[in-house]
Design a protein around this nucleic acid. Structure first.
Lengths: 152, 152
DNA sequence: GTACGTGCAAAAATTTTGCTTTAAT
DNA sequence: ATTAAAGCAAAATTTTTGCACGTAC
């Protein structure tokens, strides 16, 4: 079942590379192959280690650059992991975050209806749940206005 | 309205410091004061800059250590911000993440009922929403089992 | 052949650590 | 007076960048 995702992604890379005039290099193929095969949301360092098994000379900076390229192409995304990044909050009440892709500001919001929704069995089966947070990605009102102004 | 949170937090710090035998230093008070006053989920570097206005000699490593202490005391938490950390995923289909506090593994799960829930007006007012992800914090089944085994 | 992308090395940025001094208790 | 915590500097990470060479087109 993972195999199909991998082939699909590699096909997407071929198509997008042709469309956007990017070169189809071994490194990009192998890095995408590893990432698409992985189920554990690896870091650049981890991807590098795995790709080295097939391409012993691949460098870590190529992995960084390629992951960024794959992100630009819409083939991969950075994911949210609680506590893995250096942003802090003293407000520990249940609330959620809206993150602006443009300015990276984080705004809080509440979602009472969500609190009434039971956590799905699929998630409860994974372990004991202590906390829940929603991350909304988008563009904040300020950045939308700024962009609209610039486009006119 | 922020003022009350600040005073509340400082009071918590006094109480917890007494309880746990920690010393109530200017630095800890001022760092917590800044963090509790902030609404923008600042990084350690940002907190450092703000605290320096009141304590010009405070060092950046004290801010790092203190934020960690405040986290241990349960007065602050690291927050999730999409794309600010180096973990990647090639699976772009709508799904959510369960993160184990103990081993930091990230597991995926689906939540179809959530997809039917409308995003609250409070959040829609913040800007255009492009994506939604839930982060569950907890302890995974493996780590629970490991811990139970060790305790016996 | 052209020039985009890689590899290498070095730099920049971020976070942690060892040790000495300061200050809270 | 004790000793936890701060400050300083240096180290360890993590991520980015400049440049020469290799390779996909």
């Amino acid at each position: 079942m993972r195999h199909e995702l991998v082939e699909q992604k590699l096909e997407d890379l071929r198509r997008l590379s042709a469309e956007r005039g990017l070169r189809l290099t071994h490194q990009r193929m192998e890095i995408l192959r590893e990432l698409a095969s992985a189920t554990d949301h690896p870091s650049a360092e981890t991807v590098h280690g795995r790709v080295q098994r097939r391409l012993p000379t691949v460098s870590l900076d190529t992995v960084y650059r390629t992951l960024c390229t794959l992100e630009d192409l819409g083939l991969a995304a950075k994911v949210s992991v609680v506590g893995d990044n250096g942003r802090f909050d003293a407000d520990l009440s249940p609330h959620h975050h809206f993150v602006c892709d443009a300015c990276h500001e984080v705004r809080d919001f509440a979602w009472p209806d969500l609190d009434d929704l039971p956590i799905p069995g699929e998630a409860r089966a994974l372990g004991r749940v202590d906390g829940l947070r929603v991350i909304l990605k988008g563009t904040c009102a300020d950045c939308l206005a700024r962009r609209a102004g610039r486009d006119s």
